[in-house]
Simulated assay, not measured.
Amino acid sequence: MFVDQYADNAPVLKAKVELESGSTKAVGEFHEDSGDYKFAVKSFEKPGEYPVTLTVTAGDDVDILAANLVIPDGHAGEDHAHGDNTSSPLYQRIGIGAAALVVLALLILGVRRLKKTRGAGGLK
């Protein structure tokens, strides 16, 4: 997962990114070479919709973001008679990547809302 600033889309590097979904809790491992955060969890391997809360702490700034991570069913509508190859690891990775992009877009919207609330006299 990549984490960027709302105002200028600059990457947020070396932050503490905590993920929570149901009983799953994990802290993202920052990879300096790629600038992303990875979570060592297996909770999202099965298709479904997962409520996710992320807490991003960077210096004195703390943002809490909520979204639903949707992992599509790679076998939905699959026609086994025609040898459909949508269960290959490549298609599964594409599906997971697409779901991650949806979560990232929802996170960006959450940050925008939080910043608007702060700018309108909300909590700091």
Results as ranks from 00 to 15, higher is better:
Ala99Tyr: 12
His80Met: 04
Val56Ser: 04
Gly122Tyr: 05
Phe30Ile: 03
Met1Thr: 12
Gly35Val: 10
Gly77Ala: 06
Val56Cys: 06
Leu107Thr: 06
Leu104His: 14
Leu65Cys: 03
Ile64Pro: 01
Asp63Thr: 08
Arg118His: 04
Asp60Thr: 11
His75Arg: 13
Gly110Leu: 02
Gly28Trp: 07
Asp4Tyr: 05
Val52Tyr: 08
Gly35Ser: 05
Asp36Leu: 08
Lys46Leu: 13
Leu69Met: 09
Phe39Ile: 05
Pro51Asp: 07
Val70Asp: 06
Val102Tyr: 13
Phe30Glu: 01
Tyr37Ile: 00
Asp33Ile: 00
Asp84Val: 02
Asp84Phe: 10
Ile71Asn: 05
Ala120Asp: 08
Lys116Gln: 09
Glu45His: 13
Asn85Pro: 04
Leu90Ser: 14
Glu29Gly: 02
Lys124Thr: 00
Leu104Asn: 14
Ile108Pro: 01
Asp8Thr: 13
Leu13Ala: 12
Lys14Trp: 07
Tyr91Cys: 09
Pro51Leu: 08
Leu101Glu: 15
Ala15Cys: 08
Gln5Cys: 03
Lys116Cys: 01
Tyr37Phe: 07
His75Val: 10
Ser21Leu: 02
Leu109Arg: 13
Asp63Cys: 00
Lys46Ala: 15
His80Ile: 02
His80Cys: 01
Gly95Val: 02
Ser21Ile: 01
Gly59Ser: 01
Asp8Asn: 15
Lys116Leu: 10
Thr53Gln: 12
Ala98Pro: 05
Gly48Cys: 07
Leu114Met: 05
Thr57Glu: 11
Asp8His: 11
Lys38Arg: 09
Gln5Lys: 15
Leu114Ile: 05
Val70Ala: 01
Lys16Glu: 13
Asp73Asn: 14
Ser87Met: 10
Glu78Trp: 07
Gly83Ser: 09
Lys14Thr: 07
Asp60Arg: 11
Val103Ile: 11
Ala7Asn: 02
Leu54Ala: 06
Pro11Gly: 04
Ala58Phe: 05
Gly122Phe: 04
Phe30Pro: 02
Val12Gln: 08
Val70Gln: 04
Val62Asp: 04
Leu109Met: 12
Ala10Cys: 02
Pro72Asp: 00
Ser87Arg: 14
Asp61Ala: 09
Gly22Tyr: 11
Leu104Val: 07
Asp79Ser: 09
Asp79Arg: 11
Glu45Arg: 13
Glu45Asp: 15
Leu101Ala: 15
Gly110Thr: 03
Ala99Pro: 12
Leu65Ala: 03
Val102Gly: 11
Gly48Pro: 08
Val70Lys: 10
Lys25Thr: 11
Arg93Tyr: 10
Ile71Ala: 04
Val56His: 10
Val41Ile: 12
Gly22Phe: 08
Gly110Lys: 09
Gly83Cys: 02
Asp63Arg: 06
Gly59Glu: 01
Tyr50Thr: 07
Leu19Tyr: 07
Val27Phe: 05
Lys14Asp: 11
Gly22Asp: 06
Gly122Thr: 02
His80Pro: 10
Val102Leu: 15
Asn85Ala: 13
Val70Asn: 04
Ala40Asn: 14
Val62Ala: 05
Gly121Arg: 05
Lys42Ser: 15
Ser88Arg: 13
Glu49Leu: 06
Gly121Ala: 00
Leu101Pro: 07
Gln5Val: 00
Ser88Asp: 14
His80Gly: 07
Gly35Ala: 08
Gly22Glu: 06
Pro11Cys: 04
Ile71Ser: 08
Lys25Leu: 01
